[in-house]
Design a protein around this nucleic acid. Structure first.
Length: 883
RNA sequence: GCGGGCGUGGUGGAACUGGUAGACACGCGAGAUUUAGGUUCUCGUGCCGCAAGGCGUGGGGGUUCAAGUCCCUCCGCCCGCACCA
């Protein structure tokens, strides 16, 4: 009996597919298309198991859809700009481009060993001038259309990477990559006007019904729409130019509960006051320090300073409120100023208690006569009716929503304010003071100002000779690169030295894949045919940034003629897969970073545990966590492919856990997948020579019926053969719906079941129809398994004597007559507990079923000769006898 | 704090609109093959019990002929956002 040799077969089949150009596709309006895309990787050097899992899922979908007759676009490329290349360049003295290119070469080779069905002719890297030239063209068109602008802005400055970060890249007040506390600086920056599309981007989320709810919710929260009232206070005692103070509130129904106004330390009024008051200046400086760098905002104490200024309450000219500068008021939301209602807002209450300010309730719990605010603000849900006791638009029970509506109307009628919708989403700052990114194609001229580079001069290439040994922007320091004549007047001018955020690169690559050779960013015909991406697959960590930016980009591209309005939602369906985890091994008694041991450092201790092979320390096995170099719990895909083959790695990645959940990588699990691959191979061995006994288990020399069994009428067919055929066709139906539904673990389970049935059927070789049924089952197994384990299935398919290639075979069709059972087994319950089973015809009448159930001895036992109270028959499901 | 998700054997996980809980796999146990180990094959495996039977989906309560699934309540874990007015 031979053994399947993956090391030999896999490269062979990969070469055959290459030669066939099996996965190269072209626009073909005659055929339906399917575009399946995995989030392209950053070329960090090596692929990891997360990539293997992600790309295997995409490949299953791609191969399956191809078999279903679709013209499948399945491309791969590289998200190749970014900081790590510069860091590596600094560390090794190697040019970022050289480092990146060699990483790409290594990773491409790894991906090829996995047998993924990519159209490699479409490959590109975002650092290719052929790619970023078109990105620059898009930038110019966006600039002309008003989607891009430049302004002086307070930015998040990463002092380690010496670059600006987008709000989205600041996590807990720290740079997402460097982890350094972010500082605030004022710089002139380029922005994409994404906030103008906030409402459109929010509304369209409703239509993304093939996206995970979780992602849709995260995007909606990120955009953060709120409805409220904007109105103006008249000030008393404020410096000139600050006679009024605008505030925004989502609770205008609590206007009567106002006890003070508060402004941000960055508010123009605060800045004006700081000019003349050292005390205020010092306080504002203190606020800014804690603003972003303090990580424990939760514990951050409310700080405030009374400015001495007052404002007049809009509903009562005699009523004046003090104006405080408060550290919890943000300048970049609303107007940077609020009015505070301590009774119904916890922050305001904390502040009021600390500084002895008034607490005035507007509404109270319905049941309470003696209502008092203590340490907790009273904040009932907006949708529930509450008892208003002090409100300018009415008292008594009403919902806050209703009161808010009335309050806005009241303000608009009274002319002191207007309804306003606010968004949390802010414009996307894309300027980065780095070398390894796409240059922004404009020139700064002292006479003409900001001048776009003419498109015929694109790309603006990055200079090759750069000095990366110093912090800061190498383009700024370059001796000649930025010196150019102004495209408009010809005088000496300077190039823009900012490069684009790398999220820009990944915001339109999916469109470029539809025509990677086009001499414009997209090709209309190709984009029309291939877009949108039918299935996008990637990590949930991109749920907000990348996906939101891409949605913005598609709209901006449509409005500048690079896509159509049909393609403003680029990803029709999204799937976010879970991570690949692995146990951790810690050497006992060794402190944290040093304690981690790699699996190969372990030795079994003979008692079911491990010791460290060299030091002998006891090993504490920790829970499975995401694979990471620092925890030393990574498994290298190359090692697995070398040992077991790509099919095994792919099959295991699909088999153990639901795709959206984390999967734990275990040696036992991989071996299980490997055993299954070998088992399928052996089963085919038995089928090749049915006449010569001894191949399969048991059996003996009963074979010999040869091919004559094909076409045996069902009535003549042995029961076992019929049963096998039924199972084969049920498996087709189940696996098909499992793949469609992205439940690969269940599809795998169905394949195991079919294989088990096939193995059992080997005992009955030679029975009428059995050889045919076995052959059908075997071939079906191969065809259903092919998208998951493409090499071994091709190999067996060929060994079975087929001249065709599975890669070209259509998906099997389930015979509806064989999927439905004629006879079914119904569970029979007595008082809800299962007591017996009953075999009946599929379409047996209720009464017949009930009678038969009552006649069963297991049921009669409980009846004791009496009639049952009730008999419930759910056709095709269950019988329940109530006594 | 706000929003979302999850909780099922020793383990990963199945269970469609309420209808046989534990598919499939791993692990474990017994046996067969093998010089031996591994491989392979067969059988068994939720828990208690010799059995009949009983108990079982985080805890408690409810609806129903029937609840992992629906409702109420409590507990635990995970993720996202977070001084957003």
């Amino acid at each position: 009996m031979s053994r399947y040799n993956a090391a030999e077969a896999e490269p062979k089949w990969q070469a055959i597919w290459d030669e066939m150009r099996a996965f190269e596709v072209a626009t073909d309006p005659e055929r339906p298309k399917y575009y399946v895309l995995n989030m392209f990787p950053y070329p960090s050097g090596r692929i990891h198991m997360g990539h293997v899992r992600n790309y295997t899922m995409g490949d299953v979908i791609a191969r399956y859809k191809k078999a279903r007759g679709f013209n499948v676009l399945h491309p791969m490329g590289w998200d190749a700009f970014g900081m790590p290349a510069e860091n590596a360049a600094m560390a090794r003295g190697e040019h970022p481009g050289v480092w990146t290119r060699s990483n790409i070469a290594a990773m491409r080779a790894q991906l090829k060993r996995m047998g993924l069905s990519y159209d490699w002719t479409r490959e590109f890297a975002t650092c290719d001038p052929e790619y970023y030239a078109h990105q620059q063209a898009l930038f110019l068109d966006f600039l002309e259309a008003g989607f891009v602008y430049r302004r002086d802005a307070m930015v998040n400055w990463d002092p380690v990477d010496m670059t600006v970060l987008a709000n989205e890249q600041v996590i807990d007040g720290k740079g997402w990559r460097s982890g350094a506390p972010v500082e605030r600086r004022s710089l002139v920056q380029w922005f994409f006007r994404i906030s103008d599309m906030a409402d459109e981007l929010l509304e369209a989320i409703d239509g993304l019904d093939a996206w995970p709810d979780k992602v849709r919710l995260m995007q909606a929260n990120w955009i953060g729409k709120s409805r409220g009232l904007r109105f103006t206070f008249q000030t008393r005692g404020a410096p000139a130019g600050h006679e009024s103070l605008a505030v925004y509130t989502t609770r205008p129904d609590t206007l009567m509960g106002a006890s003070f106004a508060a402004i941000s330390a960055d508010h123009p009024l605060a800045l004006a006051l700081a000019e003349v008051s050292p005390e205020i200046a010092a306080f504002c400086a203190e606020c800014r320090k804690t603003g972003t760098s303090e990580e424990a905002l939760e514990k951050a104490e409310k700080l405030g300073l009374d400015t001495g200024i007052t404002v007049v309450h809009p509903l009562d000219p005699e009523w004046q409120l003090p104006v405080w500068i408060a550290n919890f008021v943000l300048m970049d939301y609303g107007t940077g100023a609020i009015f505070a209602v301590p009774a119904h807002d916890q922050r305001d209450l904390d502040f009021a208690r600390k500084y002895g300010l008034a607490v005035i309730p507007c509404y109270a719990p319905a049941e309470s006569e003696t209502f008092e605010i203590d340490a907790d603000a009273y904040v009932p849900p907006k949708t529930e009716p509450v008892r208003y006791v002090n409100c300018h638009v009415g008292t008594g029970r009403m919902t806050a929503e209703e009161a808010i509506d009335r309050s806005i109307a009241h303000a608009e009628t009274g002319g002191y304010g207007e309804g306003q919708t606010q968004y949390r989403l802010r414009d996307w700052g894309v300027s980065r003071q780095r070398y390894w990114g796409c240059p922004i194609p404009v020139v700064h001229c002292d006479t003409c100002g900001v001048v776009p580079v003419p498109k015929e001069d694109l790309p603006i290439r990055l200079p090759e000779d750069v000095d990366l040994s110093l912090p800061g922007n190498p383009l700024e320091r370059h001796p000649t690169w930025k010196q150019v004549p102004c495209p408009r007047c010809g005088d000496a001018a300077r190039r823009e030295t900012d490069t684009m955020d790398t999220f820009v690169d990944s915001s339109w690559y999916f469109a470029r894949f539809t025509a990677p050779e086009a001499d414009t960013p997209t090709d209309a015909a190709a984009a029309q045919y291939w877009m949108n991406v039918d299935q996008y697959i990637g990590g949930v960590e991109h749920a907000i940034l990348h996906l939101l930016y891409s949605r913005f980009f598609a709209r901006a591209m449509a409005r500048t003629g690079h896509l159509t309005e049909d393609n403003i939602e680029p990803f029709s369906a999204l799937f976010t897969q879970g991570m690949v985890c692995h146990e951790t091994y810690a050497r006992e008694g060794v402190p944290e970073p040093a304690c981690w041991a790699a699996p190969e450092e372990l030795a079994e201790d003979g008692a079911g545990g491990y010791r460290h092979a060299e030091t002998g320390e006891r090993i504490v096995v920790g829970p499975a966590v995401k694979m990471s170099k620092s925890k030393k719990n990574v498994v290298d895909p190359d090692d697995i492919i070398a040992q077991f083959g790509a099919d095994t790695a792919r099959f295991f990645m699909l088999s153990d856990s639901p795709p959206e959940r984390d999967v734990e990588w275990t040696a036992a699990g991989v071996e299980g997948a490997w055993r299954f691959v070998q088992r399928v191979w052996r089963m085919a061995d038995g089928l090749q020579a049915p006449a010569v006994g001894g191949g399969g288990a048991g059996g003996g020399g009963a074979g010999g019926s040869g091919a004559g069994n094909h076409g045996v009428a069902p009535t003549e067919m042995a029961l076992a053969a019929q049963a096998l055929r039924r199972q084969t066709h049920k498996t087709i139906a189940d696996v098909t719906s499992d793949i469609e539904g992205f439940v690969f673990n269940k599809a795998v389970a169905r394949l195991y079941e079919l294989a088990n049935a096939l193995a059992k059927a080997a005992d009955r070789a030679g029975e009428a129809g059995m050889d045919h049924a076995r052959r059908e089952a075997m071939e079906t197994l191969l065809r259903l398994m092919n998208p998951m384990a493409p090499h071994v299935t091709e190999e067996i398919w060929q060994a079975l004597g087929n001249a065709t290639r599975l890669v070209d075979m259509p998906w099997p069709e389930a015979d509806a007559a064989l999927v439905e059972d004629e006879v079914i087994v119904l569970p029979v319950q007595v008082n809800g507990k299962k007591r017996a089973e009953l075999t009946v015809a599929k379409d047996a009448a209720r009464d017949t079923v009930a009678d038969q159930a009552l006649a069963l001895s297991e049921v009669a036992r409980f009846l004791d000769g009496k009639a049952p109270k009730k008999v419930i028959v759910v056709p095709g499901r269950i019988v329940n006898v109530v006594v």
